[in-house]
Computed example of a mutant assay.
Amino acid sequence: MSAPVRVLVCDDQALIRTGFATIIDAQPDLEVVGECADGQAAVDLAVQLNPDVVVMDVRMPVLDGIQATRLIAGAGVARPVKVLVVTTFNLDEYVYEALRAGASGFLLKDAPTAQLLNGIRTVATGSALLAPEVTRQLVGRYAARIRPPESADPESALTPRELEVLRLIANGLSNGEIAATLVISQETVKTYVSRILAKLGLRDRVQAVVHAYRSGLVT
């Protein structure tokens, strides 16, 4: 059997933190290795415990979840840890900033238990996770506030088919849905996604979504 996914739970509300930890620890393939109530403790424990995934709240004392995510998973971090942000609808701007800081995805705090567990497993495998019900609202609303860098134009780097796949990714479609839409295999979709990320210098699908909105490819 493979080793369980090591999870660090960070939330300043004890009830939510304990609830998450209890749910996660009950799974045979997941293991809670630590809990904390502020962002600085999250950074310290991430270094000390080397978890596979950090379940991160956004608003926390001492150091907020965005800053903590940047220090744990951001560009330039020697050994980045995958971060799954959990939030509520009224904190969507903070979540967008967390995605820019390096988070691998986000979920809503009131998401079903199965969605939380699936989210942890998904992020742990190196895939990105976006809550589909708020993706377009979230990224579309705040990406326009940031002027894209000169290198952010995907049309100069991608083929027409790759641009089409990127648009579908940005609209929240899974690999299977993209395959069905374009009438191609999922393996072919995976190849296109890998090429897109490599050509644009992006880490995962979350960054691809943000990039598509920032560059004006999707509005």
Rank of each mutant, 00 (worst) to 15 (best):
C36K: 05
D38E: 10
D38G: 03
D38S: 04
G39F: 11
G39S: 07
G39M: 07
A41I: 04
A41V: 00
V43F: 12
V43W: 08
V43L: 14
D44F: 03
L45C: 03
A46H: 03
V47S: 10
V47T: 15
Q48G: 00
L49A: 05
N50I: 07
N50V: 15
P51Q: 05
P51S: 06
V53Y: 07
M56C: 07
D57P: 13
V58T: 13
P61N: 06
P61Q: 13
V62Q: 11
V62K: 14
L63V: 12
D64Y: 01
G65R: 01
I66A: 00
I66K: 08
R70E: 13
L71C: 06
L71K: 15
L71D: 14
A73M: 03
G74S: 05
G74K: 05
A75E: 15
G76M: 12
G76Y: 11
V77P: 12
V77L: 08
R79N: 14
R79E: 15
V81H: 06
K82P: 02
V83N: 04
L84G: 02
L84A: 03
L84R: 01
T87L: 01
T88G: 04
L91A: 11
D92S: 04
E93S: 05
Y94G: 09
V95N: 09
A98P: 10
A98M: 05
R100I: 01
R100K: 15
A101K: 11
G102M: 09
A103H: 06
S104I: 00
G105R: 08
F106N: 07
L107R: 05
L107A: 00
L108P: 14
K109G: 14
K109R: 15
A111M: 12
T113M: 13
T113K: 12
A114P: 00
Q115P: 01
L117P: 03
N118W: 08
G119V: 00
G119S: 04
I120T: 06
I120D: 06
R121A: 06
T122Y: 03
A124D: 05
T125H: 08
G126F: 13
G126V: 14
S127P: 05
S127V: 02
S127T: 09
A128L: 07
A128W: 14
L130P: 02
E133F: 09
T135P: 00
R136W: 01
R136V: 14
L138Y: 10
L138A: 01
V139Y: 10
G140Y: 11
G140Q: 11
Y142W: 15
R145L: 14
I146F: 10
R147C: 08
R147F: 03
P148A: 15
P148K: 09
P149D: 15
P149W: 13
P149L: 14
E150Y: 08
S151T: 09
E155M: 05
E155F: 03
A157M: 11
A157N: 00
A157W: 08
L158P: 02
T159C: 08
R161C: 10
E162K: 13
L163V: 13
L163Y: 11
E164P: 01
E164N: 02
V165E: 11
V165P: 09
V165D: 08
V165G: 01
L166A: 11
R167E: 10
R167I: 03
